[in-house]
Amino acid sequence: MTDNEYLLTDVDMARFLVNGYHVIELDLPAGLNEHIAEQLDGLAANPGDAITESVPELWQVVEHPQVRGALISLLGEDYAVNSHRHWHCKLPGSGDMQWHQDGTNNRNTTIDRLLGLYYPHTITAEMGPTVIVPGTQFRNAPTDRMATYTNIRGQVPLTVPAGSFAITHYDLWHGTASNRSSVKRHMIKFLFNRTSGNSAPSWNHDPEALKRERDWDARDKAQDAVNILSFGNPLGVSQSDHYKERIIRQACWQELLGNQEQQEASRF
């Protein structure tokens, strides 16, 4: 059981459904980030899934209460750490990686897989940050069809401090910029799976939060779950797309609340 203080709030959850990511600055033991980065600097080959055997201190990151709290909130108490993980070492001078979604395309409303991206050192714009496109997680877009996109309005480079852990929806569009710096850029990718559906909220849920009325004056400046879910449009997509996004995220929200029947009804 994780201390409730590390669970996400309704607002955090609503923002995740809208944007498809949540970044945590971990309160790790002093020196741990540096120690992990030094070990990664010294690796001669990529051990693939065995990166946690080469650098066992990574478990302190994955099992950190802040990470667990966020993952329980999004995937349920019984989430699983997938056996796949990967060290993404971006060498100085290496080029960018174009937009893609991982896996094949058959998207749905469920949050059943998440990526966890850990950065042991501070990432600058020159180091080839991961770049994500908020709000694209519900798009059924084969990676081939992203080939003519380069810069997208609203894209977010993950230029983050050392010890940051970015949780992204598995289907969020992502890529990387070029590494123009003189240092290796490290990122360890983890994968987490849902193992059962929610029968109740698994985050710090306040039922009163759902009683808010829509505030047409606040819109994209909304600070409460109801209005974030209603008006959030991080890319400024068209009205048609925004309506569809809203329906999909509401269906997902109902599913997370454990309201299976309402979830079915709200999905078109």
Binding site: M97, Q98, A125, V131, T148, T150, N151, I152
Partner: peptide, 25 residues
């Protein structure tokens, strides 16, 4: 409004690149 922008110059070896910082539209 434009949401996506890709410029391709007819120059040998030209590559497009996702910006790691602020992109000026």
């Amino acid at each position: 409004e434009i949401l996506g922008y890709t410029l391709i110059e007819p120059v040998k070896g030209f590559r497009v690149e996702i910006s790691g910082g602020e992109f000026e539209w």
